[in-house]
Design a protein around this nucleic acid. Structure first.
Lengths: 240, 240
DNA sequence: GAGTGGTCTAGACCACTAA
DNA sequence: TAGTGGTCTAGACCACTCG
């Protein structure tokens, strides 16, 4: 068997919930029943339920069962580490990407980037600016800094399609995790020129340092959003 | 034994990492070694490591070990479901809270709130406005809507101290999870009056619907932040 | 090949809920 | 009291990394 059993069960239950076979407020069958149904042990099944709980599909209640809390009106994809390309593919009206800048710069001229990517003065950085447009209207300006020693060979063509796909499929590297901050910043003249019109002259800035599987930071992403079309969604649980 | 074994191990390792006994980039002892050290089975120990990984303390790498990725300069508390009172208690310079409004309103006059709290036209809602100040300066305006059938008896005194404490300790209810969105909005006249000065006339709005353990929504929280002092931090992992 | 983490099992006992 | 989920165990086998 190729795929992991708990993953198969997770996918199946998730699909059932999304299709409304199990509805919001309803209880799933008990763990015992699900074990029989999927022909598995209890710990394996519980692993699947744990994942469903982490992803806001169910809420487990001791002594009662697992209640479905999935709400189709919510959309949590921005809270996970997903490339623009991957989100865009799911949109009904996708964005066009325009690569505005692709240049190599010196680490010592960008001290903040140098720190974030843990570089030294004499290292180089690949700087990429991409405009995400709907027709003529620019809604997002992505400014990215890559460590070319870790992820070499990013060309304009790669930047045009999907850099994450290139890193994972072609370079065969593991993209692991990311630390993100959201702030509200005045837009400098360059940004105002990209956006054409900005009211007020502020942007929502999502800044993320992204790490490879071995813990090394390879990318600093600064995603500038037109404030009127910015929305970040998140799910959180109360600690007990 | 009262506390859960995996929780004890998790707490211990977390403390060790925070105190620098294990440093960023370093490997933890292997699972075998840790099992011996904590006198436990491997699955239990792995549960603790799983928690550490979820909370951005370590990154597990198959065939190698568990690498410490904890970065003390990041602060993830806003990404979890934590009451203002609880965050405030950890600040060196705490906020003062002023209860500006505490009133009962009709659900049918607030259709958005009615929907979020799953109420009917003739239900009532408790509306609370609280100002979070540092000296004379208001930095956050919290507007909350509670379902009084689920969480009755919220008084001005409760609102002044901690509503979550009251709900958990006095009402003995379980606060479970929350769906949150972050947007940037123009500030209406009332908000501008509260904030005194706002440059630009925008606020960062963190809107959260909060649910009890049985899946019922009891609170809609609209937290309006002065944009210049707003920062949201988040951690995410790439799906495999 | 030795050592690491990843998956899966069968079974035990405990804590909580509801009738 | 019966049924639910929560914790913990000991052991098996697999997949991966590295010298």
């Amino acid at each position: 068997m190729n795929r992991k059993k708990y993953q198969v069960i997770y996918d199946q239950l998730k699909a059932d919930i999304r299709q409304g076979i199990y509805c919001q407020g309803q209880l799933l069958p008990s763990e015992m029943e699900l074990c029989l149904q999927f022909e598995t042990s209890r710990e394996t099944l519980r692993k699947s339920l744990q994942l469903l709980q982490n992803d806001a599909y169910i809420q487990k209640i001791r002594g009662k069962g697992s209640i479905v809390i999935y709400d189709p009106s919510l959309n949590f994809e921005l809270a996970s580490l997903t490339s623009f390309q991957e989100i865009n593919a799911g949109l009904s009206q996708p964005y066009q990407t325009e690569v505005a800048v692709l240049e190599t710069i010196k680490a010592k001229d960008y001290p903040d980037v140098k720190t974030a990517l843990q570089l030294r003065d004499f290292d180089t950085i690949l700087r990429v600016v991409r405009l995400r447009k709907k027709g003529p209207r620019v809604n997002i300006v992505d400014i990215d800094f890559f460590n070319p020693k870790l992820v070499p060979g990013i060309t304009e063509e790669v930047a045009q399609t999907s850099i994450y796909r290139y890193i994972e499929k072609d370079l065969n590297l593991v993209i692991s995790h990311s630390a993100k901050t959201i702030t509200f910043q005045p837009a400098n003249q360059t940004l105002q020129d990209y956006f054409q019109q900005l009211e007020p002259a502020y942007v929502a800035l999502v800044e993320a340092t992204v790490f490879l599987g071995d813990g090394q930071p390879f990318q600093l992403n600064q995603s500038h959003h037109r404030p009127s079309s910015f929305k970040f969604t998140n799910f959180s649980r109360r600690q007990s």
